[in-house]
Simulated scan of single mutants.
Amino acid sequence: MLDLTEKLLQSHPIYNGRIIRVRRDEVLLPDGGHGLREVVDHPGGVGILALDDKGQVALVRQYRYAVGEHLWEIPAGKREKGEEPRITARRELHEEVGADAERWTDLGTLIASPGCYAERLYLYKAEGLTFTRQHLDEDEFLEVRFFPFEEVVEKCLNGQLQDAKTVAVVLKAKVLREKSGL
């Protein structure tokens, strides 16, 4: 197999924000040439496919400023420094949906845009939900609704749901469900 690894020569910080850090790296290319790479560092996050006792999926609707749209998405959030992804998932489900889950299934990881964005998302399925109340961050405003699983699958397929982590985890769960015969 070819070694296509690019090796870091120099890194130049461009921006250090509250959540992200942007840098421009000079790299040594596999053919010996030099290249520039712009990278957005992010602490990573989680996405949760939360299913209630009727098999309905919790989706949250919120305004996403970067794209200027209201989007329906699975509950999700940013990892705190050093926080284990499963702990983040439990925290985010509690904060956004006001729920705790009895059963957690690891559904793998997702790298949404590896060309420049260094964020890894850890995906989980949460079942056996019990409800309390939401604990939203002070700058977080969202609506929670439960939708039948097959309706959510259809929304992914017809483009009504466009959030990458939501589409990926829903379609992955659909395939896994079909493989297991459930």
Rank of each mutant, 00 (worst) to 15 (best):
3 D>T: 04
5 T>R: 04
13 P>T: 03
14 I>F: 11
15 Y>A: 01
16 N>W: 08
18 R>A: 07
18 R>C: 02
35 G>A: 05
40 V>M: 09
42 H>W: 12
42 H>P: 05
47 G>S: 13
51 L>P: 03
54 K>S: 12
57 V>Q: 05
58 A>Q: 03
58 A>R: 10
63 Y>S: 00
64 R>H: 13
64 R>I: 14
71 L>G: 01
72 W>H: 07
72 W>S: 10
76 A>S: 10
77 G>P: 01
80 E>K: 12
83 E>R: 10
83 E>G: 02
89 A>N: 01
96 E>D: 02
96 E>R: 00
97 V>F: 11
100 D>T: 00
100 D>P: 09
100 D>S: 15
100 D>A: 12
100 D>H: 15
100 D>N: 15
104 W>I: 06
105 T>V: 15
109 T>S: 12
110 L>H: 09
117 Y>H: 11
117 Y>M: 11
117 Y>D: 12
124 Y>R: 08
125 K>W: 05
126 A>F: 00
126 A>K: 05
132 T>R: 15
135 H>M: 15
139 D>W: 03
142 L>W: 03
144 V>C: 04
146 F>I: 02
149 F>Q: 01
151 E>K: 15
151 E>P: 15
153 V>W: 11
153 V>N: 07
156 C>F: 07
156 C>A: 02
158 N>F: 05
164 A>G: 02
169 V>G: 01
172 K>V: 04
179 K>A: 14
180 S>L: 14
181 G>H: 09
182 L>S: 15
